[in-house]
Amino acid sequence: MKLAGLKSVENAHDESVWATAWVPATEARPALLLTGSLDETVKLWRPDELALERTNAGHFLGVVSVAAHPSGVIAASASIDSFVRVFDVDTNATIATLEAPPSEVWQMQFDPKGTTLAVAGGGSASIKLWDTATWDLIATLSVPRPEQPKPSDKGNKKFVLSVAWSPDGKRLACGSMDGTISIFDVARSKFLHHLEGHFMPVRSLVYSPVEPRLLFSASDDAHVHMYDAEGKSLVGSMSGHASWVLSVDVSPDGAAIATGSSDRTVRLWDLSTRAAVQTMSNHSDQVWGVAFRPMAGAGVRGGGRLASVSDDKSISLYDYS
């Protein structure tokens, strides 16, 4: 497996690019790349030329997270001011503005069926679930707090940063500042257990599309862990980045993961050997997001795409094969 650079756009945004996601293709158009930046805009790009499709304004303070509905019709973006803006991808019409004070908004993700949007709620130590039909808050999944928080603890240790749906939509995983990962049963809105091993913030989580129990976590401790999320066991640990791992994504075939790190590199890891097979160093600053384009249709081989976004204001597109 390997990555080959296809196209890079310098100064894609006026400021650091912090978030990226692929909007799945619809019948009318191909998949689009969604990016969010400190410059308070969200942009849509058409692959493979990375031609700018549209620029959405409407956020104040930096855009920290973007997510696309599996249908490819709607998408959501969130910023530091804790608003989530849900919009129509093709018309940019605002569908809903979500907020659940005092909970902040960090990473968010639509469930695989597209009925629910899960939002990592930061200091509220919870995940907020929004119904995508009515845009009502339907549930709050809280991470259990430790019994006796030490008064000397600065800030909230269970601050929730990242969130990931299992491929069957039954489980939700969330990562927090103190490095613990919490697994929830969505149907019963019930906390199941913690996954331990990280002791620094977990900024990105992703389930393998092929093995529903397999969860990957990226942490500031420069490691990527592979967990059996049901069995509560650490399957493997991968090190190689020189600094924080900010983002992780699994390839649609489930054979590789890509990571973006503060060490300015994007790495491709072969899961069969659990070793880095390639390191891309085309970015000149921290790589905040990596995203594989979802498979256009079943059985389509090749033509995989990986996008990465960075503090250097650029976005890059790679061919994955």
């Binding site: 104040f60 303070l61 004070p101 200091g123 603890d153 800030g155």
Partner: peptide, 24 residues
């Protein structure tokens, strides 16, 4: 003015969150 509004939002969010979590 926009910045002021942001500031108000930031501050009031913190005020609202103050009970919820300890941030000194």
């Amino acid at each position: 003015v926009a910045e002021l509004e942001n500031a108000v939002r930031v501050f009031s969010q913190m005020a609202a969150g103050a009970n919820l979590h300890y941030h000194g």
